[in-house]
Amino acid sequence: MKKISIILSFLLISLVSCEEKATNVQVVSYEEMETYLDLEDIQLVDVRTPKEYKEGHINQAQNIDFFSPTFDQDIQKLDKDKPVMVYCQMGGRSAKCAEKMKELGFVKIYDFKGGYSKWKSQEQTK
Results as ranks from 00 to 15, higher is better:
residue 75 I to V: 15
residue 68 S to C: 08
residue 75 I to A: 11
residue 63 N to F: 03
residue 79 D to P: 03
residue 106 F to Y: 14
residue 7 I to F: 11
residue 59 N to D: 15
residue 104 L to Q: 15
residue 82 K to R: 15
residue 70 T to C: 03
residue 60 Q to I: 07
residue 125 T to Q: 12
residue 19 E to V: 06
residue 11 L to Y: 06
residue 76 Q to G: 11
residue 90 M to F: 13
residue 120 K to G: 05
residue 16 V to C: 03
residue 18 C to R: 09
residue 15 L to C: 10
residue 85 M to V: 13
residue 31 E to F: 01
residue 2 K to S: 13
residue 118 K to R: 07
residue 101 M to Y: 01
residue 53 Y to P: 08
residue 34 E to M: 15
residue 98 A to F: 02
residue 51 K to I: 09
residue 44 L to D: 07
residue 16 V to Q: 06
residue 46 D to G: 13
residue 16 V to E: 10
residue 73 Q to S: 15
residue 20 E to I: 12
residue 64 I to D: 14
residue 114 G to Y: 00
residue 94 S to H: 03
residue 90 M to G: 12
residue 83 P to Q: 14
residue 36 Y to T: 06
residue 49 T to Q: 04
residue 23 T to I: 02
residue 3 K to I: 09
residue 76 Q to P: 09
residue 52 E to S: 15
residue 88 C to Y: 08
residue 41 D to F: 04
residue 43 Q to K: 03
residue 4 I to W: 01
residue 24 N to P: 00
residue 49 T to W: 04
residue 106 F to H: 05
residue 122 Q to R: 12
residue 59 N to F: 04
residue 12 L to W: 11
residue 49 T to V: 00
residue 86 V to T: 04
residue 74 D to Y: 04
residue 13 I to K: 00
residue 102 K to Q: 11
residue 79 D to Y: 03
residue 40 E to C: 05
residue 90 M to V: 14
residue 38 D to F: 09
residue 47 V to T: 04
residue 2 K to I: 13
residue 4 I to V: 07
residue 17 S to Y: 07
residue 35 T to N: 12
residue 101 M to N: 02
residue 54 K to E: 09
residue 118 K to W: 02
residue 99 E to F: 00
residue 61 A to I: 04
residue 86 V to A: 04
residue 125 T to G: 00
residue 52 E to C: 13
residue 18 C to N: 14
residue 17 S to M: 03
residue 92 G to C: 02
residue 123 E to F: 01
residue 119 W to Q: 12
residue 46 D to W: 07
residue 3 K to V: 01
residue 40 E to L: 13
residue 62 Q to F: 12
residue 29 S to Q: 04
residue 98 A to N: 06
residue 8 L to E: 01
residue 80 K to W: 03
residue 47 V to Y: 01
residue 85 M to W: 10
residue 28 V to M: 00
residue 64 I to G: 13
residue 16 V to F: 11
residue 2 K to W: 08
residue 71 F to V: 08
residue 26 Q to P: 04
residue 110 Y to A: 10
residue 87 Y to D: 03
residue 120 K to M: 11
residue 94 S to V: 02
residue 12 L to K: 12
residue 66 F to A: 05
residue 73 Q to V: 13
residue 3 K to R: 09
residue 111 D to G: 06
residue 116 Y to S: 02
residue 37 L to A: 15
residue 41 D to G: 03
residue 10 F to R: 07
residue 74 D to H: 08
residue 75 I to C: 10
residue 50 P to T: 12
residue 23 T to Q: 02
residue 19 E to M: 11
residue 57 H to E: 08
residue 16 V to Y: 12
residue 116 Y to A: 06
residue 98 A to Q: 02
residue 99 E to V: 00
residue 53 Y to L: 10
residue 35 T to F: 09
residue 52 E to L: 07
residue 68 S to W: 05
residue 56 G to N: 11
residue 87 Y to C: 05
residue 17 S to R: 00
residue 118 K to A: 06
residue 78 L to F: 09
residue 24 N to A: 00
residue 121 S to T: 14
residue 63 N to E: 06
residue 78 L to I: 10
residue 103 E to I: 01
residue 39 L to G: 07
residue 97 C to A: 15
residue 92 G to K: 14
residue 60 Q to H: 14
residue 103 E to R: 09
residue 48 R to L: 00
residue 78 L to K: 10
residue 99 E to N: 08
residue 40 E to P: 02
residue 62 Q to N: 15
residue 50 P to I: 12
residue 22 A to W: 14
residue 7 I to Q: 00
